[in-house]
Nucleic acid binder design. Structure first.
Lengths: 253, 253
DNA sequence: CACAAAACGAGAGCACTGCTCTTGCTTTTC
DNA sequence: GAAAAGCAAGAGCAGTGCTCTCGTTTTGTG
């Protein structure tokens, strides 16, 4: 895989990367809908048809960007988790770290976030390649709960209202697939928290909080702590200095 | 406004409606990204340039569709609320009714849902016209809490962890703006529940639950009940016969 | 080394898009 | 009845994704 490469092959990987980089630049500026292969080729100084030797279609390029976005977000989440103290530390702090990292990344890369967590592109169905990177944030969240469980800092779930059978089956399947050493109700709670984390972030990034909530960071932190409590995570909340400070509503005209 | 209209004016409103209807048809089939003015004009048998006499741009057409979508969703939510018993009835049932109506509408109209709650269109910023219809679901949720409060069926919020100042300000502003006779912590809780409701629905509609949760309706109902409990809504959960039955994952290839 | 095979870049071209402008025609208004 | 306004259609512009062909360059192999 890392054999010494001929000049041509090296040029190929370089150009492929250059195309993806320029595409990501345009994506970050204008959004996925306005990403134009011709524009990418233009700023790269090559003919638009030449671009098709590297990415057979616009969808393929988008897929590459999607994978990268998942990976960047996942890496940020993992980094934040690693920096938030050892596995034996207070789980609430670690939980907050991961959640705040997700929010911070999303606010910094709104178009890339929209690409992976927004409305799916019409004719496009995410290929299986994306499932691995897509799971990284979820795995980080799982790690927090798992470590807390292992170190006895995972209390009882907030409200376990008799897991219905289908949900229990899902939880057990997930626990088996991902090797999560947690009881089914905890897994179900974890999935719910995962969904709500991204619900919070999406609402903010997509501008749905405009004219409703101004204290975005406080709102987010509050919700995150509540999620953690419902999971049974213990520890004191670190309330000061949120990962992303307040900013005015980001709408245009 | 409802003066008798000349033939020309009548034709105008008819054609305007026909354009919007056809556009909505294409939107429902292909999604907002693939909505083409020329295609609409084609199936309507008119020249594409003629269409611009009725909608000055694609964005204006989209705005009309957005308003309609908000209104349709809001109407469904209000209808479900009205059918879920009197204001003095058990608030949990009414809460569930509204939430389920939102989910059902979203699953039936995924592209229209994506138009209003998905990633925003690049150059497009929602005009103020949309804010009224957009608020209808929120107002229905507020009505549930308000009625419960008025009839003494609103318990204490689940976990009021010392509302931070910015959030409290937001809550008080909202309570004043919308005339909500509820204490600030309850308003804050309500907003959080509102966000999480749409987070749940969006995750499901946008296919993020694929390969994770199969028992979608159970998952949703569970989360909705938890939201209601955290609000302090009382009553027994109606668990049987969810508004939308299970269906297999809706992904393509 | 020579030569066929593969990879490559550029250009032309197709079908499509949103949108504008001009040209006639019809309806309304004075 | 004439002037004004509204209207439909067509041509056209600039842009898009994508395909195909045609020379050129690089590669691996006999």
């Amino acid at each position: 895989m890392s054999r010494i490469t001929g000049a041509r092959e090296r040029a190929r990987t370089e150009i492929t990367a250059a195309i993806k980089d320029e595409a990501r630049r345009q994506l970050a500026e204008e959004g996925a809908g306005r990403l134009s292969l011709r524009a990418v080729a233009r700023t790269l100084g090559i003919a638009s048809s030449a671009l098709y030797r590297y990415y057979p279609s616009r969808d393929e390029l988008l897929t590459a960007l999607i994978v990268d976005a998942y990976d960047a977000l996942g890496a940020d989440a993992e980094r934040a988790l690693a920096a938030a103290g050892p596995p034996a530390g207070p789980p609430l702090v670690r939980w907050q770290a991961v959640c705040r990292a997700v929010r911070a990344w999303a606010l910094e890369h709104p178009h890339e976030y929209a690409l992976i967590y927004g409305s799916p592109v019409p004719g496009y169905s995410a290929p299986l390649v994306t499932t691995g990177p897509a799971a990284r944030v979820g795995l980080a969240l799982i790690a927090v709960a798992r470590d807390a469980h292992a170190h006895g800092t995972l209390g009882a779930p907030g409200s376990p209202p008799a897991l219905p059978p289908g949900l229990r089956a899902d939880a057990e399947r997930l626990a088996a697939e991902l090797d999560i050493p947690l009881p089914a109700p905890a897994v179900a709670e974890l999935v719910a928290a995962w969904v709500q984390l991204f619900g919070l972030v999406s609402f903010e990034v997509f501008g749905q909080l405009n004219r409703v909530v101004d204290a975005r960071a406080e709102f987010f932190d509050q919700a995150v702590v509540r999620l953690a409590r419902s999971l049974g995570l213990t520890g004191d909340s670190l309330s000061g200095q949120p990962a992303v400070t307040e900013r005015g509503s980001s709408e245009g005209s």
